[in-house]
Write a protein that binds this DNA or RNA. Sequence first.
RNA 1: GCGGGUGUAGCUUAGUGGUAAAGCAAUGGCCUUCCAAGCCAUCCAUGAGGGUUCGAUUCCCUUCACCCGCUCCA
Length: 546
Amino acid sequence: MEMEKLVSLCKRRGFLFQSSEIYGGLNGFWDYGPLGVELKRNIKDAWWRDMITGHDDLSVLTGAPAKYQMVGLDCTIIMHPQVWKCSGHYDLFHDFMVDCRQSKKRYRHDQVRGRWVEAKGKKIFVSTTAEAAEEEAETERKALKFFKLRSKNADELSWTSDFVSLSAMSDFAEVLGPDANELGTLTPPREFNLMFKTIVGALGSEDDAAFLRPETAQGIFANFKNVVDSSRVKIPFGIGQVGKSFRNEITPRNFTFRSREFEQMEVEFFCRPEESQEWYKYWRDRRYQWYLDLGLADERLQLRDHDSDELSHYSTGTADIEYAFPFLPSGEFGELEGIAHRGNFDLRSHMEGKLNPNTNPLELETNEHGQPKHRGSGKDLSYRDKETNERFIPHVIEPSAGADRAALAFLCEAYCEDEAPDEKGKMQSRTVLKLHPRLAPIKAAIFPLVKKDGLPELAQQIYRELKQDHNVFYDETGAVGRRYRRQDEIGTPFCITVDSQTLQDKTVTIRDRDSLEQSRINMNDCATEVARRIAGKGKVCSENPS
RNA sequence: GCGGGUGUAGCUUAGUGGUAAAGCAAUGGCCUUCCAAGCCAUCCAUGAGGGUUCGAUUCCCUUCACCCGCUCCA
């Protein structure tokens, strides 16, 4: 499937528009049109229903280690700045980057290391991005090449310093960049603010700087105690939240896949440390199945466990649910959702202060004076088991999904060009969105076959009745075939048509979008039939010829 | 952020230093008894800003957006 066709359809039919399009657009921001907003809302509603309000906390769900509770939360986008300092985002999202004018590469300032060397009366700083084990050999190789020396003359190189990070350098004039063969090609370090900054208060100054949240999760951690104290939840339980997050992406690209403003659907699931591994596996598999149940094909969906070297020290497991988006090279997948075992890192960071994620066991990150780099709240965020009277800091499993990425994946999966007969029975190509009925923006369209003999009045009667429970659409213009095709293109799963036979026996036809099959049902049964078909329809996207 | 490419109607394309053309779509009619039919009518465009010029959609500059490749992806 070509991405341009889907992008074009999204615009033409009102799923997605570029933000501020009349002013030329804004890179990394997208608006949802009348149909897109319904699709995205259906995705969020399905998630909320399946994870939170519809959750059966009295039964042990298939694959789950035990019964558990689920509650929701809706936190503010702007939070106390200390939240982001303790969460690690403040440090992590303020990278200093240097660019190389020669190699055109960009490096994280603190990840480039090197040492001073002198030869032939000239002193230079040789830098590299190589691993610590190889940096000595790598800098020697580079120095030899720069001074045009043979390996056997390596003793002519006089190393005058230990390895230091580029961040310790004040001037790059004598620096040989990691991929450069001349000096002074590195630009001064520039700050990349990946969090959106704003000022709180009408007269606020830089001291009143605050940030738009780069994830919804921290609001849940910050409210952990409030939820425990107010809602009678007992561990194990989860807190879910759906909402906007903001990241100043360096390169937004691939339609809505990497946007600067996006919506997340996150659960923070709190459990006993010794049971956390089982819960991690449960959530990983449960979330994967959710996408399958809503129609993503398993050959385009994968559950990828992170390798141990990708994991944070405090995490005993992280998996990504990934989808083979059509804009990616063949064989590559893009992340829809990450399920991370986060240990007690977050709750402890908000208690004690920012922890150093590279320590094991976790230690407080300190500044040059030995003081905490970012002070925590000092509040006790531990949990007391009312039965055993045991107090502990829960471990956290975090399934974190992107609503916009899910919407994009469902659209990509649903887009389909197949054939349908025209009025002469000849096969014509048709564009159809084979969206799961739960996700389809419009559940059913109601047509009078012709605009006379009282058929419109009957159709409108059905329309009004269905409207009470579903988002339905009424259309009486043009040939009925054209109306069917219009609905196919926006993914409407069912079309109900009133014809002359309705006048005699009160039956109407209901047409299935995917099979094109029509069956006659009593016009008074339309609402129940549509509800039955939406609920009963399993996987509808089993075939995707593109 | 770098390099290359592209911007004409909702979409697909045409064209020109001097009135911007068509098909499809949309809208309103007529006609139509089940899968994009037909007829009539209507609506809509040179991404933005500046320069050269009597005159710029066309030439030049800047900018914005999109696509491809690098980079980045917390």
